[in-house]
Structure formats: C-alpha cells, structure tokens
Simulated scan of single mutants.
Amino acid sequence: MTAKRRTLHNAPILDAALGRTPSRRPVWFMRQAGRSLPEYREVREGIGMLESCFMPELLAEITLQPVRRHDVDAAILFSDIVVPLKAAGVAVEIVPGRGPVMDKAIESRQDVDKLPMLEEDVPEVAAGIEIILGELSDSQTLIGFAGAPFTLASYLVEGGPSKNHEKTKAMMHAEPETWHALMRRLTPTIIAFLKAQIAAGIDAMQLFDSWAGFLTERDYRDHVLPYSTEILAALAEDGIPRIHFGVGTGELLGAMSEAGSEVMGVDWRVPLDRAAERIAAASGPRALQGNLDPAMLFAGEEVVAKEVARICAEADAAIAAGTATGHIFNLGHGVLPHTAPEAITRAVEIIHEH
C-alpha cells in the first residue's frame, strides 16, 4: 500500500517534534477524542467502543470533533489499545466500567503460539483516516496510535485490566521464555498496525505504554525495551515523528528514550526540565510532550493559567539548556471523563498564548 503522505505547511506539532521553531505553542490532549464531549456521547449512543473503531465514518467524526471544538493542533486517531488484537482475530471486548477483557487469558507457551497475528491492512481504519485527512487543514497534524507490547501483553496474560499485574510479572520472571515468545509475537502485529496507519496517511504516531510504570527499570530493560525499540526502528524509514509515552514512568524516562523516538511524553509527576535531564543523559535531547495534570482542568481558569505558565517555563528552560529540542503541550495522561468541554477549550487558548 502506497503512503498517502500530505505536505504540511506551518504545522506546529511537526515543527516542535523535529526541533524547528513552531508558529505557536502546539497542543493536543490524549483522550481529547471522546468521553468529555456531548457530541461524542450522542454519536456513539448504542454503539460499542470497539465496534465504533471499525466504522470509518464514525471513527472519523469522533476523531475530528475535538479539533473543530477546541482548535487543538492535532487530531489523535480514535482507537483503543486492543484494536490491533481485535483486527487480528483475538476474542476481546471492552466491558463498560472495566475495560478490555479477553475471552481467554494467555497462560502457556501453547497459548502464545496460537495467538493470532495481524498480517494485513485494516481497511476500516484506513478508510477513516482518508475521511479525517480530507477535513484537516495543512497545519493540523493527524497522530496515529498503537499500544506498546508490554501493555498488550499484560492485558492478554491478566485476561483484562489489573491493579497489580501479578500474573504478568510472574510469567516474566518464572517463565521468561514464554514471556519473550509472547513479546516476539505481539511486536509484528503492532508494527503492521502502525504501518497500515502510515500507509493511509498519518503525519505522526504515538506508542503508548499504559502499564510500563509498574515495572522496575531493570525489568523494563530486560523484558520490554528491546521490543519497543524494534517497533520504533521499523518505522524510522517512514519519516514521521514518533512519540513514546507511558504512565507513571518517571523512573523509566531514560530507558524509554533509548527506544529511539523523536518525542518523549512525560506524565504529570515529573517536572519537564527534570525529565529532560534524565532523557538527555540517557540518549541525548529529545522533544518533550506534556504534562498538565488532567485534574487541573477542574480547578478553574486561574489555576490552569498558572500551571500552564509553569510547564511552559520548564520546557523552555530545558530547550535553552540544550536538554530538550522542542515542546508539545499535552496533559500528563488523558482527559478525564467529566471534564467540562469549555475548560478544555479555554486551556488551549491559554496554551497558545505561550
């Protein structure tokens, strides 16, 4: 499939990601496409989460809603971490109030060997991307998305969301050969899913490791980093900025940056200038993405303005010090479900003033 790459002019997200000077402070929010918007709830009424990810017109509409409403500088493709598993044929459903639940958990090497792999394009997603690109301006970036292999593996081994990841860690340490076989089986599926999005025309991509923050740096390096590195390396030739983000990963930022992305996402727990020092010491300066605490959007405009100013100052200090190459404003995780849409819109206006 031939890539349908757009030529973008004055796209702040791409400029910041690639170390150029953007025309304004770029901003997009994780989970901006979804739960907080009344128009989202309206169009998705009666339609399952995973089902909506495979309906091109609906996928496109949900992706575009926050761009129209908030004037963010990027659309993030509406998807879910388990979409590539579903596309490959894994029996998984998203249970309201709980999250992705597997029909059968991975418990043995035999289960790993039977795990379906994604070996073709996902035409529904490609069709949705084509619709989205038709509406975005040439200054607005479309960011593709995939879950990282550790997070997918944890869902598969636990059978669904887990508070402690005990089965995952037990397999990792007690059955390392089975663990590595699972990671080797997941990695090509994630690459194929991202390659399909790139071929359809996305402008940048994010590899999202929801659960990596539950690991020690040693375990991350031994059991996860090689596979995330392989994924990002496989996309290097495609020439789009690669963003790497995990939740609760302050102690892993240096190790995660070694996977090779142009942009490192930082959650709200670590100041950006300190995060930049950790990243630069491990692998050289990168562009930073982050990192407003999502809860601050409930605290009122004065608090948001103060926090935005602080975060921008930290990012600018890191750039001036040579420990970062650019800054893309974002939350330190996703938009919370009950966030007032007006608070998001106003936050974007404040960020663009910096």
Results as ranks from 00 to 15, higher is better:
residue 2 T to F: 10
residue 4 K to D: 14
residue 5 R to L: 13
residue 9 H to D: 12
residue 11 A to I: 07
residue 13 I to N: 01
residue 14 L to R: 08
residue 16 A to N: 02
residue 18 L to F: 08
residue 24 R to W: 06
residue 36 S to T: 09
residue 44 R to P: 11
residue 46 G to A: 10
residue 57 E to D: 15
residue 58 L to M: 13
residue 62 I to P: 00
residue 63 T to K: 00
residue 64 L to M: 14
residue 70 H to D: 08
residue 73 D to N: 13
residue 73 D to F: 07
residue 74 A to R: 04
residue 74 A to T: 07
residue 75 A to M: 02
residue 79 S to D: 06
residue 107 E to K: 13
residue 112 V to K: 05
residue 114 K to H: 11
residue 115 L to R: 08
residue 121 D to A: 14
residue 127 A to H: 07
residue 139 S to E: 15
residue 143 I to N: 01
residue 148 A to C: 11
residue 157 V to D: 07
residue 160 G to I: 10
residue 162 S to A: 07
residue 171 M to H: 05
residue 174 A to I: 02
residue 174 A to K: 12
residue 175 E to K: 13
residue 182 L to R: 04
residue 193 F to Y: 15
residue 197 Q to E: 10
residue 198 I to L: 12
residue 202 I to Y: 05
residue 204 A to M: 04
residue 211 W to M: 11
residue 212 A to W: 02
residue 215 L to E: 12
residue 220 Y to P: 04
residue 222 D to P: 00
residue 223 H to A: 12
residue 224 V to D: 05
residue 250 G to F: 01
residue 254 G to V: 09
residue 255 A to T: 10
residue 258 E to R: 15
residue 269 R to P: 06
residue 275 A to Q: 04
residue 281 A to R: 13
residue 291 N to L: 10
residue 296 M to N: 11
residue 299 A to K: 11
residue 309 A to C: 09
residue 313 A to P: 04
residue 313 A to W: 05
residue 317 A to V: 07
residue 320 A to F: 00
residue 325 T to L: 13
residue 334 G to I: 07
residue 344 I to Y: 09
residue 345 T to C: 01
residue 348 V to F: 02
residue 349 E to W: 03
residue 351 I to M: 08
